Simulated assay, not measured.
Amino acid sequence: MSMVKGVDVASYQSTTYSTAGLDFVIVKATQSTNYTNPKMTAQAERARKAGLVVGYYHFLVRGHPKEQAAYFVSKAGERAGDILACDWENNTDGTYATNAEKDTFIKEVKRLRPHCRVVLYCNRSFWTTHDTTSYAGDGLWIADPNRAAGSPNVKHPWTFHQYSISGGMDRNVGNFPNRAALKKWAGGAAPAPPSGAAGTSPSKPNTGGATVGLTAQQVHDAVWKFDQIAAPDTSPTRDTNPNWQAQSWLKDTGNNVRALRAELRDVAAQAQANGKALSALRAQVDALTAQLAGRGSEGET
């Protein structure tokens, strides 16, 4: 089986690494919301000059996945056809992002960069023991150094396989027959409509008769991006769900109704208690009135 070859590099690799025999390079860009690889630009440019497909990855840490996604895309290169990746593994302190945070990060990067493929990198242990949703964005980049190149021990379809470390470099293969196929895949996430081309208009781009195919995930992301409104201040989940879609509107409306019902029950209970107290006071007033009336009658005789 023919496969494309690549490496992934970070700050501890050179900016003059060898590109011989490679088809792609994936460069570490960022980590958390406060680290950027100082060699990122030079390492990416070396791959571009060699005509290779370029990717960037972000080392995801625990907490604030949307903020990390925003930080990542603000630092990584922004070119159609670049691959973006979420690096999901143990941090040096032994902690790691949750499965939900992993999913949120990938979806947010896809929302922010709809023209780029977004994949998940993790080792086989994470995929089999920590993952619960099998969500990997546009592809799974699996690290399994115990298997031969192109034969990772996972049932899920894989896109890239990190199979070894050689010469101080992480070695990878991509599940594509050649570099042209990889480039076509990398550039096919959500291409922008042609601008200024003959026979085109903002409302009806010229597709040349070609059928534009969208994956279920791309349709979901497009709906999420355009079919949403800002949640009002009264939303019970405003902090965690600042934007509303139809489903979240129903959820928050239901929460509001339940909260109002609880308040009404409290008001009704208080009104009932107040009514009992008022009845008791009226009885006391009636008793005092009767006593005063009796004393008045005694005085008259």
Rank of each mutant, 00 (worst) to 15 (best):
M1H: 05
S2E: 14
A10T: 11
S11Y: 06
Y12C: 05
Q13H: 01
T19Q: 09
T19N: 10
L22K: 08
T30L: 07
Y35C: 04
T36N: 05
T41E: 14
T41F: 06
E45W: 05
A47M: 09
A50L: 07
L52A: 08
V53S: 04
V54P: 11
V54M: 09
F59T: 13
V61I: 12
G63W: 03
A70Y: 02
V73W: 06
G77Q: 05
A85I: 09
D87S: 11
D87Y: 11
G94P: 12
G94C: 13
G94A: 12
T98L: 08
E101F: 09
E101A: 10
E101Q: 15
K102F: 11
D103C: 14
E108L: 04
R111P: 02
C116V: 02
R117Q: 14
V118K: 01
L120P: 05
L120D: 03
L120T: 06
N123T: 04
F126A: 13
F126N: 11
T128I: 06
T128M: 11
T129D: 06
H130Y: 13
D131N: 15
T132Y: 10
A136E: 02
A136Q: 05
G137D: 01
L140F: 03
I142K: 08
A143Q: 04
A149C: 07
P152M: 08
P157D: 05
H161L: 11
S164L: 06
M169H: 15
N172L: 09
N172C: 10
G174R: 08
G174D: 08
F176E: 10
P177N: 14
A180L: 07
K184Y: 00
W185H: 09
A186S: 09
G187V: 00
A190C: 07
P191G: 01
P193S: 06
K204L: 02
G208E: 00
G209P: 07
L214H: 10
T215C: 01
V223N: 06
K225A: 14
F226C: 10
F226P: 00
Q228R: 15
R238W: 04
N241K: 09
P242C: 05
W244L: 15
A246V: 15
A246Q: 14
Q247F: 13
Q247T: 15
W249N: 09
L250S: 11
G254M: 11
N255H: 10
V257Y: 13
R261K: 15
E263M: 14
A269M: 07
A269G: 12
Q272N: 10
Q272G: 06
G275E: 14
K276V: 10
K276F: 08
R282N: 07
L288N: 13
L292I: 13
L292P: 00
R295C: 07
R295F: 12
G296P: 00
E298V: 07
G299F: 10
T301A: 08
